[in-house]
């Protein structure tokens, strides 16, 4: 297992290099330019040239890329082009924990709720409950987050002022964004959990366990859920990805100073250094989550060996 993990971490290096190169090239080839964006209507070729030189943007692209990689190897993410007083590492270091906490909470909420609903639907004696949950799943999957956000803000912040509209800092600030981020993952975790629990319930070993006289609850927890867990765990990994991507809408709507907002600003302002750093952060996040999912397979299913 240790060897496998070491292998996967080693594989991440070319992945990072590839991501770094891709985003570097894409960023610099995209139309628009950080110097003119920063100077806006006060741009003059002379002022632009001074700023371009200060930022090193007047050097050939390969030279800029080599310098960027050299800095990266020394774990130096550089300073923002748009706000040269700002170290990118500080910017990311401040924003990333906020987004991780948001995504972590949303995934936790989605996992607990989704699994409960899925198991509930699969084991429901009355088909009406199953149907209700199924309808809820379809609704949850279909609603875009900007719609649910607007509805929740209207209800719980304006109609009944229980929660803040937007902002960050207080525990109450977490409630609405986490709920919005969790809705779609709840739906697809519930759907997968329902399907895989439903399938496991039909297995021979379940019939055997029942025929031995085990109580239904024990059968469910001991035999069904563990066997049904693999697809659900994969889905939780996906849910994390979903929460990270969903943050691009949620952080803007709820005015949360997380990494997605940093990324959006960087894209709009062509702030290359910041943009590159956020892409690397996302690459790292997705690699880590995938690795965790793969490793958890071995734990959940003894037949899987790496």
């Amino acid at each position: 297992m240790a060897r496998y993990i070491a292998y996967r971490v080693g594989m991440a290096v070319p992945l990072f290099l590839g991501a770094a190169l891709l985003i570097f090239v894409a960023g610099h080839l995209a139309p628009g330019d950080p110097v003119q964006t920063v100077l806006g209507d006060h741009y003059t070729p002379a002022a632009g040239a001074v700023l371009r030189h200060q930022l090193g943007l007047d050097r050939p692209l390969p030279v800029q890329f080599a310098r960027y990689l050299g800095d990266l190897a020394r774990l130096n993410l550089g300073t923002s082009y748009v706000n040269p007083g700002l170290r990118v590492a500080d910017l990311v270091g401040h924003a990333l924990p906020i987004s991780l906490r948001l995504a972590g909470l949303a995934v936790a909420l989605a996992t607990v709720t989704g699994v409960l609903l899925g198991v509930g639907a699969a084991t429901a004696r009355r088909a009406i409950l199953d149907s209700l949950i199924q309808v809820g799943v379809v609704v949850g999957l279909s609603l875009p987050s900007f719609v649910t956000a607007a509805v929740l803000v209207y209800l719980f912040a304006l109609r009944w002022p229980l929660l803040p509209v937007a902002g960050w800092g207080a525990p109450a600030n977490y409630v609405l964004p986490v709920a919005v981020l969790a809705i779609s993952p709840v739906a697809f975790i519930a759907r997968i959990a329902r399907a895989s629990v439903g399938q496991a319930l039909l297995e021979d070993y379940v019939r055997t366990a029942r025929s031995k006289g085990l109580r239904a609850r024990r059968v469910l927890f001991r035999h069904v859920l563990r066997n049904a867990a693999l697809p659900v765990v994969t889905t939780i990994g996906l849910a994390f990805g979903n929460a990270i991507v969903g943050a691009f809408v949620v952080e803007v709507l709820f005015n949360i100073p997380g990494i997605a907002r940093v990324a959006i600003n960087a894209i709009l302002q062509r702030d290359y250094t910041v943009l590159q750093a956020t892409v690397l952060v996302y690459t790292a996040l997705f690699s880590i989550v995938n690795l965790m999912v793969d490793v958890s397979y071995a734990y959940l299913n003894p037949r899987i060996r790496y």
Binding site: P97, R101, G104, V112, V115, F221, R226, A228, A229, V232
Partner: peptide
């Protein structure tokens, strides 16, 4: 077992978040 693991994991996560410095 699985449900319990999920619940414990979720609680740990909530605790970690609540203890977060920021």
């Amino acid at each position: 077992m699985f449900l319990r693991a999920v619940a414990v994991g979720a609680m740990l996560l909530v605790a970690a978040v609540a203890a977060g410095p920021a």
